[in-house]
Simulated assay, not measured.
Amino acid sequence: MNQQQKANEYVQLTKPGYFLKTSNFIIPLLLTIGSFLFIYGIYIGLMATETDVQQGENYRIVYIHVPAAWVCMLLYLMLTISSALYLIYKHPLTVIISESISKTGALFTFITLVTGSLWGFPTWGTFWVWDARLTSVFILLLLYVGHIAIIINKNTNEKSHKIGAILAIVGFINIPIIKYSVDWWTTLHQGASVTQFKTSIDPTILYPMLIVFISFLVYSLYIVSCNIKRDILHRKATLLKIKYKNII
């Protein structure tokens, strides 16, 4: 196979028609896998792990809170990449992907803030403090919401998509701030329990947490795939409507 044939195959993968053909199989599969992993991970976390000596049963909220926090940051990385690809190639599919990622990321960031507050009240005695970690995550939510507001308003055009992409890329500076805020500043939030080289979390706690994390990733792919399919079908319907009006 020569280079030209390979290039044609890659182009074929980015065509909406190819995605519509494969999505009928991929979307139900993602939903099934994500649901199974989530139920399995939560079952282990709630039923098969011991009660924490210091926090009692309150600590079990970490099985939602921590995976959601990991996912919302990872999705922002994906949003930054898709925004950069849009600025380079102007491919319409990157716009749909960016919008889907942004909505999903906002959802998981909101879940992170809510579950963190519910965990913080019995631990710290308050639902919210403006420390570095909580504030930077709240800023992440504002970045997601701001990006969504820019790219889905009624007057959305190429300029709006460009502004949204630039906002997403510039906002990426907040991700390392979230990651290292507990190391750079004194905060109520505990330090990092999982790093690149080691973890201080007991394996019996880490295992279900990772399963839920993977389920959230699969669910994110499911939402993005559904949104891409919806937008492609909507655009096709719009084009057919315009064509029909012209014929009449």
Rank of each mutant, 00 (worst) to 15 (best):
N2Y: 04
N8Q: 11
P16Y: 06
G17R: 13
S23A: 08
N24M: 06
P28E: 09
P28F: 02
L29Q: 13
T32E: 09
I33M: 05
I33A: 06
L37W: 04
L37S: 05
F38M: 12
A48R: 12
A48N: 13
E50F: 12
Q54V: 14
G56S: 03
E57C: 01
N58Y: 09
V62R: 03
V62M: 13
Y63N: 04
V71E: 09
V71I: 12
V71F: 05
L74V: 15
S83F: 05
S83C: 11
A84K: 04
L87W: 11
L93E: 12
V95C: 14
V95W: 00
I96A: 03
I97F: 04
E99D: 13
S102I: 04
F110D: 03
F110H: 01
T112W: 00
T112G: 06
V114I: 13
G116R: 02
S117T: 08
S117P: 10
S117G: 15
G120P: 05
T123M: 13
T123R: 09
W124S: 04
G125I: 08
F127A: 08
F127W: 10
W128V: 13
R133E: 12
F138G: 06
L140Y: 06
V145Y: 01
I150M: 03
I151G: 01
K154R: 08
N157Q: 10
S160A: 08
H161M: 11
H161L: 13
I163H: 05
I173M: 09
W184G: 09
W185F: 14
W185D: 12
T187V: 15
H189N: 09
Q190L: 11
Q190E: 12
Q196F: 14
K198A: 14
P203I: 10
T204A: 14
Y207C: 02
L210D: 12
F213Q: 05
I214W: 00
S215W: 01
F216T: 02
L217R: 01
L217S: 05
Y219A: 03
S220Y: 01
S220R: 00
S225A: 12
K229R: 15
R230L: 13
I232Q: 03
H234E: 15
R235K: 13
L239H: 08
L240R: 07
L240M: 15
L240K: 13
I242G: 10
K243I: 02
